[in-house]
C-alpha cells in the first residue's frame, strides 16, 4: 500500500507556488467573489469588512462569520482564504473545520495575543503571515507559515509601506549573500531567527517560501511596482472593491501583474479605470492606529 501524505509543508508551501504571478482579492460576499474570479483573481480573501472599513469603524476586528465565508466558498472554484487574529488558534481551528484553503494570520484584525503567534505546524491547512522585514518573515516561517506577504499598511491605498517592507526584505537578502559565513551566527541572533533558515535563505538568494506584496496596492502601476521590486504576486484589499469600477480595475491589476515588465501594456491597462479608492496618506495616521507594527 502506498503512503499518502496530507498536510505536509510541501503541499502547503506548494499551494502558494501555484498562486505566483497572481492577484488575491479581498471580497465581502459571493457577488464580489464571482466578480474577482471573472477578473482573473488566483484566490479571494473572504472578509466581513475590507481593511479600509475596519480602519474607519474602529473597535475590535475579529474572524469573519463562518456562514459568510462558506457562502463565498460555495460561489467560486478558485481557492478561498480567510483571516484569523494573530495568536487566535481557535479561530484558526474554526477556519480549518469549514475547509478553508488558506488562513491569513493577520495584523489587520485585532491581535488576540501580543506575545505568541499561532503554532502553525499543528494545522493541515496552510498559513500566510505578514512581515515588515526578513527577521519577521523567517520567525513566521519557523512557526509554520507556508507563505509570506509584506504587511504594507492595509486599508490606506498608500503603497509607501509595502515598498518599504519589500525593499527591507530584499536588502536583507542581498546583505546576507555578501556576508562571510562566520558572521551568520551573529546575524541569526540579531534577527532572532534560526541559523538553519538564515543559511537556507542565503543559499537560495530568496525567501524560503513564496512572498507576496500587500497593504496599500490600489492601481495596476502599484501592482507592477511591487512585482519589479521582487514580489511573487500581489494581494489587493480595499483597492478593488472600494474603487469606482471593481471589475475593470481587478482585470487591469491581474494583467499588470503578468506583464509587470512591459510598460506599454501597463499603459494600456491603466486607461479609463474610473475612480481609484480614496486613499489616506500613511503619514497622516497616528502611530497607535498603524496596523503593521502589531505583533512582530
Amino acid at each position: 500500500m502506498v503512503d499518502v501524505l496530507t498536510g505536509t509543508f510541501t503541499v502547503k508551501s506548494g499551494h502558494a507556488q501555484m498562486l505566483k504571478g497572481g492577484v488575491i482579492m479581498d471580497v465581502v460576499n459571493a457577488e464580489q467573489a464571482m466578480i474577482a474570479q471573472e477578473a482573473g483573481a488566483v484566490a479571494v480573501m473572504a472578509l466581513e469588512r475590507v481593511p479600509a472599513d475596519i480602519r474607519a469603524d474602529g473597535g475590535v476586528a475579529r474572524m469573519t462569520d463562518p456562514a459568510i465565508i462558506q457562502n463565498i466558498m460555495d460561489s467560486v472554484s478558485i481557492p478561498v482564504m480567510a483571516k484569523c487574529r494573530i495568536g487566535h488558534f481557535v479561530e484558526a481551528q474554526v477556519l480549518e473545520a469549514i475547509g478553508i484553503d488558506y488562513i491569513d494570520e493577520s495584523e489587520v484584525l485585532t491581535p488576540a495575543d501580543e506575545v505568541h503567534h499561532v503554532w502553525k505546524h499543528d494545522f493541515q491547512v496552510p498559513f500566510v503571515c505578514g512581515c515588515r522585514d526578513l527577521g519577521e518573515a523567517l520567525r513566521r516561517i519557523s512557526e509554520g507559515a507556508a507563505m509570506i506577504r509584506t504587511k504594507g499598511e492595509a486599508g490606506t491605498g498608500d503603497v509607501v509601506e509595502a515598498v518599504r517592507h519589500m525593499r527591507a526584505v530584499q536588502d536583507a537578502i542581498r546583505k546576507l549573500q555578501n556576508m562571510p559565513e562566520d558572521e551568520l551566527v551573529v546575524e541569526a541572533r540579531n534577527l532572532a531567527v534560526s541559523l538553519e533558515l538564515l543559511t537556507q535563505t542565503r543559499e537560495e538568494g530568496r525567501m524560503p517560501v513564496v512572498n507576496f506584496a500587500a497593504g496599500g496596492v490600489a492601481t495596476p502601476a502599484d501592482a507592477a511596482l511591487m512585482m519589479q521590486l521582487g514580489a511573487d504576486g500581489v494581494f489587493v484589499g480595499s483597492g478593488i472593491f472600494k474603487s469606482g469600477d471593481p471589475a475593470q480595475r481587478g482585470y487591469a491589476i491581474v494583467q499588470a501583474v503578468t506583464h509587470y515588465n512591459d510598460p506599454k501594456i501597463l499603459a494600456d491597462v491603466s486607461k479609463d479605470l474610473g475612480e481609484p479608492m480614496v486613499g489616506i496618506s500613511t503619514r497622516s495616521i497616528p502611530q497607535e492606529e498603524l496596523l503593521a507594527p502589531r505583533s512582530i
Binding site: 502506498v2 503512503d3 499518502v4 501524505l5 503541499v11 481557492p79 475547509g99 478553508i100 491547512v125
Partner: peptide
Amino acid sequence: RRNAFGRQIDSFEQEL
C-alpha cells in the same frame, strides 16, 4: 475534473 480530490486540506503527496 478540476479539484478532483477536494479542497487544499485534501492535497497530498505519494510515490507513483
